[in-house]
Amino acid sequence: MVWVSRVLLRKYGRFMDDLRIYVKGGAGGMGHPRLGGEGGHGGDVWLVAKGKLTLKGMKTQYPRKRFVAGSGANSRIAALKGAKGKDVEVNVPSGISVVTDNGKMLGELNKPGDRLLVARGGFGGSLVTNFLPSKGQTYSIHLDLKLIADVGLVGFPNAGKSSLLTRISRATPEIADYAFTTINPELGTVTYADHKQITVADLPGLIEGAHANKGRGHKFLKHVERTKELLFVVDVSGFQLSAKTPFRTAFETILLLAKELELYKEELRAKPALLAVNKMDLPNAQRNFNELMEQLQNPQDHMHSLPKEMIPADTLIFKEIIPISAHTGEGTEELIMCLREVLDEEAEKTIEQYQQEQLCALRLSEI
């Protein structure tokens, strides 16, 4: 039986990947009706991505979470055109989506240096507006953090994702022999002989119903969106979350993971995926692995007895299936090379697609 301790729940609660802030553009300045003057525009509020900043650090640095730009100057005899109000720049982490309270997407900041205008200042008063200024835009916005990684590790709790990340990268996540060890997403870097590096994200273990936000599943699943490829990690012996939940074989585990991703967002099915079958050092592992391979090669023969809610709409096709042991290191070198090969293959496809689009555009311009 698996119990989540209060200590772990408190730690989970401190993980911050969403921060709500208030932004307001400055009001425009008054025009001067007698002289025909124009008030200055209000200042704007900008978000600027910084590499090492976190949302928790932002909350500490800006406890009021309120950002208001300066008002535009009024028109006057000495200056018929009022000065623009002072802009406000808010440093935010890179890798965030910016959404208003009513769900309107304002934009994304994916890398350090990216800038996003989130609240425009009001116009200054002029002849057109009867010399009356307008107010600036006002929003309560959510900064929604999503990891940006080459590879996302996807699996149920205790599948060995943290051990695998430690084995193949320089990351040092917390590891223990119980579920929900990983509370925060962990990032590791895999370095190759030619100095090429790829980032791997160990995402907290999903549970059945994550697509419906069980276990706060949306906070986990959203990180999958920002990875280039998925690495499913399953225990070759199967998985059971607790005595109150059913035991799932490795085959059923794979189906459930695919179903959770599909129900959360169908586009995730288009991501290239690999499968690491972990814990091959355990007794009967080879027999269980052979059975799993037969099931994956003939999935329709083994799904007829399963509930419909477990079965994904499309059969999941893995680029590679690698038996591994994160404990002993068995198969991990092959896995590392497969991750690189799939990423390189996808990069080549992207380049070819871009070249074809440029060629088509050139041909159209010549018509």
Score class of each variant (00 low, 15 high):
L343N: 11
L339V: 10
I317R: 06
G152R: 12
I367F: 06
T191P: 04
E252T: 02
A49S: 10
K219I: 04
G72A: 08
W3G: 14
A313M: 09
E267W: 01
P204F: 01
L143S: 10
P173D: 03
G28L: 04
D314T: 11
D194N: 15
I168G: 01
P93N: 10
V2W: 04
T245V: 11
I367S: 10
E341A: 15
F67N: 02
A119R: 02
L53E: 11
I367L: 12
V118T: 05
K161F: 02
D235G: 06
L165H: 02
R216N: 11
K104Y: 00
A210T: 02
E108D: 15
Q137Y: 01
Y62A: 15
P185K: 06
N158R: 13
Q240T: 05
S75M: 03
G29W: 08
L268S: 02
G107S: 07
L316V: 15
H218Y: 08
L53T: 13
K279P: 01
G209Q: 06
W3T: 15
L35N: 10
K104T: 11
K271W: 05
N74G: 12
T245S: 12
I322K: 06
Q295K: 15
I321R: 01
A273K: 15
I141L: 10
Q240S: 09
G51E: 14
S140R: 13
T54N: 13
Q286M: 04
S237I: 09
R14E: 13
V236M: 01
L257R: 10
G160H: 01
L47W: 01
A119C: 05
K279T: 08
V90P: 03
Y178V: 09
H142W: 07
K11V: 12
K265Q: 14
V233N: 05
F232T: 15
A49W: 03
K24T: 09
D87A: 10
L116G: 05
